[in-house]
């Protein structure tokens, strides 16, 4: 990083941190600059890595598929018009439809079948039994269409405890890694910027 760069980054860092006290003009300015830069960044990257190679270049090469791609782009851009804006529903339908179709086998495989495969272990020990009970209890917590009474209530309650253990574990696990982020930023301010470290 150049000197000017370090100063710029340091001022920006302090401006963002000032939000912890309260919203203020410095934060608001930093926020707007960040958002403006990031929108510009994403547009540039998208134009250069997707729209040019997948739409513009194929059209210049005379590839008819390039024209089809261009039609999708134009349909999406009809949104800027109030009268033709409804045409953008067509590309939206492609996204939703194809997304739904693709996700059915993917979800069933990754979220259901492979999880089941991991629960049904080839050898049984205490952990395998606890694991299976945990899965069954958690599932009964997610049972919606039956009043929670009797044994079912016990199962769902056990499920809540397993859920709480999971939430506690992710919470405890993540706290530590978040603290290291702060350490990283402080190191930048004290070391790279002020040269104290």
């Amino acid at each position: 990083m150049s000197d000017a760069g370090i100063w710029l980054a340091a001022i920006g860092t302090l401006a963002i941190f000032s939000f912890l006290y309260r919203d203020n003009p410095a934060y608001r300015a930093a926020e707007q600059i960040l958002v403006g830069l990031s929108v510009g960044y994403l547009v540039v990257i998208t134009v250069r890595t997707t729209l040019v190679p997948k739409v513009a270049l194929p059209i210049l090469d005379g590839d008819p598929w390039g024209i089809v791609a261009a039609v999708w782009v134009l349909l999406m851009w009809t949104r800027v018009s109030t009268r033709a804006g409804w045409l953008s529903r067509l590309p939206l339908a492609v996204i939703v439809g194809a997304g739904a179709g693709l996700s059915i086998p993917a979800m069933l495989k990754a979220r259901v079948l492979s999880q089941l495969g991991a629960v049904i272990r080839p050898e049984i020990d205490v952990n395998a039994v606890v694991g299976a009970i945990g899965v069954l209890a958690t599932l009964s917590y997610f049972y919606f269409t039956r009043p929670p009474t009797g044994a079912f209530r016990v199962a769902a309650r056990t499920g809540t405890w397993f859920l709480m253990v999971f939430f506690g574990a992710t919470f405890g696990y993540t706290i530590m890694s978040r603290l290291s982020l702060l350490i990283g930023r402080t190191e930048f301010l004290l070391g790279d910027w002020l040269g104290l470290l």
Binding site: G97, A100, I104, M107, L139, F142
Partner: peptide, 30 residues
């Protein structure tokens, strides 16, 4: 042990529920 056994079990339960819910929503949308 807490992370590897009971927490993972609950996570699997959540994921299975999400999987079933996803398939149902995707099918209804289709």
């Amino acid at each position: 042990w807490l992370v590897d056994v009971p927490a993972v079990a609950a996570k699997r339960g959540i994921l299975i529920g999400i999987g079933l819910g996803s398939v149902a929503v995707a099918l209804r949308v289709m």
